[in-house]
């Protein structure tokens, strides 16, 4: 028997065995580092799809959507979603300047989401409003979100002559708690539901 003939086989077996034993270390070394840290924010329609979003709204009728957050920040995060309502003349969040709306929040939703985790909440809302025939505008009394009634006095929506509708925006701004600052900071994300008030 010539030992030289089995040299390659011997080296191969030793190499494979070494790779098997080294695999726990290699699995740690050969992982690409995460470079993108961000948060997803979404709204889905009542069927949990990106369809059938509420648009034409009647007073005191219930409408359903799903609000979701996906955390890819590399650590668990403490979020607050500020629910706000505006008519077309009021302050809106700005995607270019990355600023939130200056309007006060009607409601705050708190969410703690694990890293690479997803948080989702069904939201059922209704608006209580009436038409003021003198001022030709809708005047709001309250917004009810998940059975919580929120005061909306002084909120109005006037006729948009160009688009022939009474439009208002129910929007959701995402804020995240910063450990370094010790306070919430606007996370530069918002979602907007355009609503047309009808009789």
């Amino acid at each position: 028997m010539d030992l030289g003939e089995h040299r390659v086989l011997f080296v191969a077996v030793t190499g494979i065995l070494a790779l098997l034993v080294a695999s726990p270390v290699l699995s740690r070394l050969l992982v690409l580092p995460r470079t993108e840290f961000f948060t997803e924010l979404w709204i889905l329609g009542p069927n949990h799809t990106t369809e059938d979003y509420p648009f034409n709204i009647s007073s005191n009728h219930d409408y359903s959507v799903f609000l979701g957050i996906g955390n890819h920040l590399g650590h668990c995060a403490y979020y607050v979603v500020e629910v706000k309502f505006r008519n077309q003349t009021q302050s809106a969040p700005n995607s270019f300047n990355r600023t939130p709306s200056s309007l006060p929040a009607l409601y705050n939703i708190t969410a703690f989401v694990a890293d690479e985790g997803v948080w989702e909440m069904p939201l059922t809302f209704s608006l209580d409003y009436e038409y003021n025939e003198t001022l030709l505008q809708y005047e709001f009394h309250s917004l009810t979100v998940n059975d919580v009634e929120l005061n909306m006095k002084n909120y109005t929506v006037a006729l948009d002559g160009n688009n022939n509708g009474f439009f208002g925006n129910l929007f959701f701004e995402l804020w995240v708690y910063s450990e370094t600052v010790g306070n919430f900071q606007y996370h530069e994300r918002f979602l907007n539901l355009l609503l047309n008030m009808i009789h």
Binding site: T14, L17, A18, V21, A22, S23, P24, V25, R28
Partner: peptide, 14 residues
């Protein structure tokens, strides 16, 4: 177990 033992084990195998 996964780092030290693995490195030592690899060296032992080689």
């Amino acid at each position: 177990i996964n780092v030290v033992a693995s490195i030592v084990g690899t060296l032992v195998v080689i």
